[in-house]
Amino acid sequence: MPAFFHFLDDVALADLAFDAEGDSVQGVFEAASQAVMEAMADPKTVGATWERRVEHTGADLAELLFDWLSDFVYWKDAAGVVFSRAVIAVTQAGGQWTLAATLIGEPVNQATQVLRNDVKGVTKHLYRLYQDNGRWRARVVLDV
């Protein structure tokens, strides 16, 4: 089954919650990344004139995902961009996980992009990354 995400109706009344899942760590990271990008803007309406390399290393995979998703929020504010795509590679060596990624997008343009929520942060509320029946799953609540 391919990786996917869906926004949740009944969780986080004032904010935005989603579940993401994939067959692998890489898959769930990609699905969660797509959810965060789509929470901010319709990626199909966002170009690819801006990019940034990001790397995180750590033993705690949940913290790695949390920090990575927080990067979207940081660069959205720091560089004034929204995102069309993220290229991700998650690898494990010697008990350490490494995420090497490229964020791709373009400066915010209200005339050409379908903009959605100004996500203020990734929260730890109900936050989970876990493996269940061979699938990797994450629950994330975004503060908007």
Binding site: F7, L8, D9, D10, A12, L13, A14, D15, L16, A17
Partner: peptide, 11 residues
């Protein structure tokens, strides 16, 4: 104070 989630409202 909200009584309905954002996702529900959009639907």
């Amino acid at each position: 104070g909200r009584t309905m989630s954002r996702t529900q409202a959009k639907k």
